[in-house]
């Protein structure tokens, strides 16, 4: 893959992650600390988290075509690194109560859910593109088939 295309894909992923992390922060915050109030700097939190979470995805970069098995292994490695990044953020943040197992489990679970959702969206996007390619292919074959 061209590095430029790789970067564009990462940018798309960054915006998807920002949105999903915002939703996750809202749900977790409402459940555990609904009375908390924050300043404007809190708006940057999902963006910072998304940028940090983007770093593990760099393990998917390869100049050569990866086999399906290699992709699965790298995706698993990426999930482990993502969990590590989130736990690092949690344990270095003064506002997250890392003493509570419930909070830690919720964080780890949230990362897993977001990871699955992002991959599901990407799959659906690829599926829509594949359907369009199949339609274009059928039109191409109809145009060029022998009389």
């Amino acid at each position: 893959m061209e590095f430029k295309r790789f970067l564009i894909n990462k940018l798309v992923l960054f915006f998807m992650l920002s949105t999903l992390i915002t939703i996750a922060v809202y749900l977790i915050g409402s459940a555990f600390d609904s009375e908390a109030r924050f300043g404007y700097d809190a708006l940057l939190t999902p963006i910072k988290y998304a940028a940090l979470c983007l770093l593990p995805t760099l393990v998917m970069w390869s100049q050569h075509e990866l086999s399906p098995k290699q992709i699965l292994v790298r995706k698993a490695l990426m999930l482990v690194l993502l969990e590590a990044v989130i736990l690092f953020i949690a344990f270095t943040s003064p506002v997250i109560d890392t003493g509570s197992d419930k909070v830690i489990l919720t964080l780890v679970g949230s990362v897993l859910v977001i990871f699955v959702l992002v991959n599901l969206f990407l799959w659906l996007q690829g599926s829509a593109e594949a359907k369009k390619l199949s339609r274009d292919l059928a039109a191409f074959q109809k145009l060029h088939e022998a009389p």
């Binding site: 893959m1 399906p68 992709i71 690829g126 599926s127 594949a130 199949s134 191409f140 074959q141």
Partner: peptide, 16 residues
């Protein structure tokens, strides 16, 4: 051979 393809399906990582 494009004339021999039945359909195109999505695969992992931007491939088909």
């Amino acid at each position: 051979n494009l004339m021999k393809i039945q359909s195109i399906q999505p695969a992992f990582n931007g491939r088909f």
